[in-house]
Simulated scan of single mutants.
Amino acid sequence: MLIIIGNQKGGAGKSTTSLALANYLTSAKKCPVTVIDMDYQQSLYQKFEKAKILENKEPYEVLSATLETFPVLKDVLIKNSKDVVLIDLPGKLDDDGLLAVFTAADLFICPFAYDEFTFESTMLFTLVLRKVNPKIKMVFIPNRIKANAKFEIMEEVNAQLSKFGVITDILPDRIDFQRINTFQTPISLYPVIIPVFEKIYADHLYGKHEIAG
């Protein structure tokens, strides 16, 4: 299973979502996971290298990779149906190397916010990806949503995005998301991430990672 996580809009939370999902799949579901950091900032790979100093056993590998190396990496990493590979995508659509990644992906996870600019970026990314890979499954995660905020465009955004995929429960704007690392997610976050990630697991991963390998 190849899962890509991305959005053109900077600050949408794709790297944090990638870490939180990797932690959830390895700790709660015992899935074998590899994370590929293709983002230009390489924040996930840097967190991984920093955490290794603690000399704890890493629950999964984080690889620093470029779009050019993806075709070879894909064949090495996805050897059977139980392997889960998460890719933190670059934020831009103007690189032809993304086409191979888009074509190979099974699932697209898109964190987004309810504002007009983010919505436009999300829709553009979604339309391009669907054109390149018409069969890909899509999941949209309302992310960093502030408590008690009123979003006039929420209904419109949900109506448009639901034409392409599933919209999950929201992930609130909480300071403890900043404490997620490549070893663990703060236990305080589990009540809010479980409804989101459990649905992704049930709809797209349940049973598949247990197939003989």
Results as ranks from 00 to 15, higher is better:
residue 19 L to I: 12
residue 20 A to S: 07
residue 21 L to I: 10
residue 21 L to V: 06
residue 21 L to G: 03
residue 21 L to A: 00
residue 22 A to S: 05
residue 22 A to V: 04
residue 22 A to Y: 06
residue 23 N to R: 05
residue 23 N to Q: 05
residue 24 Y to S: 03
residue 24 Y to H: 06
residue 25 L to Y: 04
residue 26 T to F: 05
residue 26 T to Y: 09
residue 28 A to V: 13
residue 28 A to N: 11
residue 28 A to Y: 10
residue 29 K to S: 02
residue 31 C to E: 02
residue 31 C to H: 01
residue 32 P to L: 00
residue 32 P to E: 03
residue 33 V to N: 02
residue 33 V to G: 01
residue 34 T to P: 06
residue 35 V to F: 07
residue 35 V to E: 03
residue 37 D to G: 03
residue 37 D to K: 10
residue 37 D to Q: 04
residue 38 M to A: 00
residue 39 D to W: 01
residue 40 Y to L: 08
residue 40 Y to N: 11
residue 41 Q to V: 01
residue 41 Q to A: 04
residue 42 Q to D: 09
residue 47 K to W: 13
residue 48 F to V: 07
residue 48 F to W: 15
residue 48 F to H: 13
residue 48 F to T: 08
residue 51 A to L: 15
residue 51 A to E: 15
residue 52 K to N: 12
residue 54 L to Y: 15
residue 56 N to I: 15
residue 58 E to F: 05
residue 60 Y to V: 02
residue 60 Y to R: 00
residue 61 E to A: 05
residue 61 E to N: 05
residue 62 V to R: 13
residue 62 V to H: 14
residue 62 V to Q: 14
residue 63 L to Y: 09
residue 63 L to I: 15
residue 64 S to Y: 07
residue 64 S to P: 12
residue 64 S to L: 11
residue 65 A to L: 10
residue 66 T to R: 05
residue 66 T to D: 00
residue 67 L to R: 09
residue 68 E to F: 11
residue 68 E to T: 13
residue 69 T to H: 01
residue 70 F to Q: 08
residue 71 P to C: 00
residue 71 P to G: 00
residue 71 P to Q: 02
residue 72 V to G: 02
residue 73 L to Y: 13
residue 75 D to W: 03
residue 75 D to Y: 07
residue 75 D to V: 08
residue 76 V to T: 14
residue 78 I to L: 15
residue 78 I to N: 08
residue 79 K to N: 12
residue 79 K to G: 08
residue 81 S to V: 13
residue 82 K to F: 03
residue 82 K to A: 10
residue 82 K to C: 05
residue 83 D to P: 15
residue 84 V to R: 01
residue 85 V to W: 04
residue 86 L to E: 01
residue 86 L to T: 04
residue 87 I to P: 14
residue 88 D to S: 03
residue 88 D to Q: 05
residue 88 D to R: 07
residue 88 D to Y: 04
residue 88 D to I: 04
residue 90 P to Y: 00
residue 90 P to F: 00
residue 91 G to H: 03
residue 91 G to I: 08
residue 94 D to G: 02
residue 102 F to T: 05
residue 103 T to M: 14
residue 104 A to P: 13
